[in-house]
Amino acid sequence: MDYSIQKFLWTLLGLFIVLNWGFLMGSTMRRIGARLAGRVGVPIYQPWIDMIKMISLRTYLSHGVLYYIGPVFRLVGGIGMFLFMPVLVGSEIWSNYSFSGDLILLLYFQSFGMLGMALGASESGSPNATIGISRGLAQFAAVEVPMTLAVIAIAIQHHTFSFSEILDAQQGGFMNWTLFTNPLASIAGMLAMLGAMSHSPFNLVKAPNEIPIGPPTEYHSSFLSVLRTNSAIIHVVEAALFMNLFFGGADTWFMYIIKTFFVYFISVFIGMVFPRFKIEDSVRWFLKWPTVIGIIAVLVAAYWK
């Protein structure tokens, strides 16, 4: 078989694994949250049933072309992040389509889905969607600042914008992880991760009770299933992004699953403990400590390296 086709099939398999792992991780986290509240929680297979049900619902609503394209953009954002990030360290077939400048592309893909969603949700005409979108974009703009600063600090430290090289530099024992070689950038990045995951302190974007679900208010049946697919993928991929940047990546699928679980668990854990921020508070928070730490990290990296 042609090598490029082979590579494509392997990538698809990886996407399939990541999707199912995302579903499983989602329901596991919901069960953990339920146990915290003293409940039993959803069955572990609930996300799959929800997907089947959503696809089987009748769709008879149209808000125009952009309304249909919105979820697709969102899904492209999630899949794009997966495609251009190496899954396993040092593996040829599991390196996906990563190339020498993939870190910049990933930062772009992070906001790509949000922007696509903004187009689609605004087209639906629901005021709740518009409020959610404006909140989401405001918060995401604030999250981007410390995240980008952390990425720049790491890029200066390793003299590269390539994921593979950053990963290679972190191999050989956990003391080589960025977490220990560049703690300031790690702190800034991990704080930004809380916002990127949009879990509890920073989940006003999808506040279910104030602005019903926020941007996806009007999305139902198959559209919602596309959005759910994306959120399953993006939770794993976001966790993988931070795992690759700060925790040395993974060399087997087992390590990949363990590490993404714990990275995701950090944000869920903080979400369980802290109540929700108002949007202006969360923007202010991101522009305060994480940004200051990020700037110091960049200065330190530029001075010493």
């Binding site: 919901r30 339920a34 509240a37 003293g38 409940r39 039993v40 929680g41 959803v42 069955p43 609930q46 049933i49 049900k53 619902l57 609503l61 709740n128 279910p208 009770n209 019903p212 679900i213 996806p216 208010t217 009007e218 999305y219 139902h220 919602l224």
Partner: peptide, 22 residues
């Protein structure tokens, strides 16, 4: 939705918008 009855066990969940509820 409290620990005593916990309808999530049975796949019953709350949604805030009519578009997404059955």
């Amino acid at each position: 939705v409290t620990p005593r009855y916990d309808m999530f066990r049975f796949g019953v969940q709350m949604r805030a918008t009519p578009r997404q509820s059955n």
